[in-house]
Structures are given as structure tokens and as C-alpha cells.
Design a protein around this nucleic acid. Structure first.
Lengths: 208, 208
DNA sequence: ACGTGTGAATTTCTTCACAGCC
DNA sequence: GGCTGTGAAGAAATTCACACGT
């Protein structure tokens, strides 16, 4: 194992959040698990689980397996989740509203601390008794004041690229976008796409 | 190329919907494209684009590249998109509501023909002047009557597994689930996950 | 006896590089 | 000249299999 001088393949990093999901469920049934159980649960091989984790350290015990709380803590550390993250929601249409009403983010340490939109009619609206939609004109000030590094982008596809570029200017480093468009951004910006149509089109290949 | 006796790696299938997204944008600028342009646009190598497409046929012309309309049609055929797909929405909370109000599905040939929920207070509610939320008790009848094979699952995590199992009994073959839980289902059922927390946790690995 | 961590073997995926056609 | 389609080469990911610690 070596976390300092080796860069971890992204394909492994991508699996770590799934490990967390699995661990939180397995925790309900016991204090320990092992690579076989975890693998069966997630649909991966036991060897792959062990190989993945060994990239970051020696988290298991021979003969016993993994202590779930300990492994969870380690993966949280690896993914920089041992802290709270502030996010800004950019675009407050249908999806934006659903996001503001969704409790799953804050339950996992991700807090939407501001929401902006360009639609005058939405500005000032209070969602979920918690957050007030602000003008997108304030976005620079909001991002800088709160030191926000993650944005959720739920604007129309037609303005997604330019909006993303603006956010980056103000210090955003990671973007979770729901716009059905491929963003062209500097390589140091992390972008994740949520595009249900792409997921559906993937499914239909296997149907008939 | 051989589409009959070779099974195509899923990693290639997964890229095809992205090609469609790219093609629809490139189409606005011209009638043809080539592997280099497409690759640059998507962040893949030109060789990979050619290799991927060659799995399914010879869609390009030497010296010219690919006719965008033709290539789009071919990929649509490969992904079984040259038809309309009916879907049922199971769970009409926040995310369910956002889905019902989202036009991106029907614009791509995916039609939500029914929506069900277990909450008595929601039943009978009309969304978007189009669809009436029905009782989940009717789900079998709805799926069978409409011959629906795709479900969008937006129920709470605690009931996602059992709900999915029920849907499969009635003939559902593909599930797009928003529940933050790993479903354990027969291998002939196609499942795609949309889990924004997993996406965020992937992003944070690269931030600090 | 159980189950990890890990080199080695294997399989899969990506890129190279070029013949061949437009 | 430009660009595809594709074997061959190379790189990456996965699985094997086992020594070793508990």
C-alpha cells in the first residue's frame, strides 16, 4: 500500500462510495464483515474488494475480516468526508426544488447553503422553511463569502456551459450537473453527470 | 464487426448514449463529423471512438468521417431507441414530482404513462395536467395492461428492495432507481442507479 | 480454520500504426 | 490528403492462489 506516491486509478475511487453504502447496511447486522460478504453484496469479487482496499492501507485482520466502523472511518478519510461540505445550488426549477427538499445530502455531510436562480419570480422564495432563493447576480459574492467549492448545476442545458465557466471563475472546484450536456472545462475541475436519459438508454440496449 | 455472435462489453454500451448526446450537438454545426472531433468533444481518444463503433458495423467513410444523421440512426437502432418506451413511476415524493414535470424523458422517447404511490393523500392528484397519481395497489394491473417494461423507482430506501421485487413479478425488466441502496435482483433485470451522494463523494476525493 | 494482502497470471480495455478506400 | 477499420502492441484491471497472521 502507498497513498503518497502512487496515484489511485479513478475506477477504484469510484467504487469507494459504494463500499460506504454497503457498509452502512451491513453494520445493521453486525460489527464486522469480510471481502466475500462485501463483494457478494455489491456484485464484485472478493479479490477485488481486497485489492481495492489494499491500495490505501491494511484495514482488515486475517481470520476476522474488517471492522465495519473502522473501515467506514478509513474510507471516509480517504474520500475527504471527515468534514462538512458546503454546496451551492444553481438553478431552482423542478430538479432544483426536489434537491432543496431532499434530506439525503445533509444526512451525508453535504449542505446546500445557498440557492440561486435567474428567474425574478423565484427570487425571495423560501424553500423547506430553510433556504431563500437568491439572484444569480449574487453568485460570486455567495461563493466567495461561504468559501464554497462544490456546485450543483440544475440550469437548462442551453446555459449550462457558460454558467459552469462562471462558477469556476469564482472558485468552484467540483460540479454535479444535471444538465443533459457534456461540459468542456479545465481538467482540474471535477465534474460528475447525472443524466437519467443516458441511464435509460443504457438499459434499453438489454431490453427488447 | 459482428453483432450476432459476439457479446459487446458493457463498457462500450455505456458509452453509446454519450455518443448520441455529442452527435445531437455536433449536428447543429454540420452534417458530418469524425472520430477526432467526436473524441475531443467527449474526452475519448479518436481510436476508441472508431474501435467502439466498429463493434457494430462500418458506419464511417474513409476520408470523410461519419454522417451524423446516419450514425445517430445506427446508434439508436443498437440501443433499441427506434421506438417509444413506456415507463411507470413508482413513488411520487419530491423526486417523483420533479420527474413528472421533466420534459426530457418524452423528448427522448421515454413516456411516463402511469405514476403510483402508497400515500393516500397523493392518490388522485393530477400532475402537470397530464398524469394522475394512482394507488400502488393497482401497480400489477397497470404494468400488465400497458405492457410496461421499465420502472423508475423513487420510493424511500427502506422499501426499495421489496418494491423492486414486486415490480419484477409483474413484468418489469429494467429499473432506474433513485433510492440510495444497492438492489439485489435477478441478473436478467437491468438496474441503473442515480445516487447524487455517491457522485459527490467521488468528487470530494479530488478536492481538499 | 479463517480471511487478509499481494505478487503472478490472466483477462479486458485502450492505443498504436498502417493498409486501404474515398 | 484525409480518415476509417483493424490486427497487433501495450496498458490497465481483474482474478488467481497462497504465504502468513490471528
Amino acid at each position: 500500500m502507498n497513498t503518497k506516491f502512487q496515484t489511485i486509478p479513478d475506477i477504484i475511487v469510484a467504487r469507494l462510495p459504494r463500499y460506504l453504502r454497503a457498509l452502512s447496511i451491513l453494520r445493521q447486522k453486525g460489527e464486522t464483515t469480510n471481502s466475500k460478504e462485501l463483494g457478494t453484496f455489491l456484485g464484485y469479487s472478493a479479490a477485488q474488494i481486497r485489492k481495492d482496499l489494499s491500495q490505501f492501507g491494511e484495514f482488515g485482520k486475517q481470520g476476522t475480516g474488517y471492522n465495519i466502523d473502522f473501515l467506514t472511518e478509513q474510507i471516509n478519510n480517504i474520500l475527504n468526508l471527515a468534514r462538512e461540505w458546503k454546496m451551492i445550488l444553481v438553478g431552482c426549477g423542478n430538479i432544483g426544488h426536489a434537491i432543496l427538499n431532499y434530506s439525503g445530502f445533509s444526512a451525508n455531510g453535504f449542505h446546500v447553503v445557498a440557492a440561486v436562480d435567474s428567474d425574478e419570480n423565484l427570487i425571495g422564495k423560501v424553500i423547506n422553511d430553510q433556504i431563500t432563493i437568491q439572484s444569480i447576480n449574487n453568485v460570486e459574492q455567495i461563493i466567495r463569502n461561504h468559501q464554497i467549492s462544490i456546485a450543483m448545476l440544475t440550469v437548462p442545458a442551453s446555459v449550462a456551459q457558460e454558467t459552469a465557466e462562471e462558477l469556476i471563475k469564482y472558485g468552484i472546484k467540483g460540479i454535479l450537473t444535471y444538465a443533459p450536456i457534456i461540459l468542456s472545462l479545465p481538467s482540474d475541475i471535477r465534474v460528475e453527470y447525472i443524466d437519467p436519459v443516458i441511464s435509460l438508454q443504457h438499459i434499453t440496449y438489454y431490453l427488447n
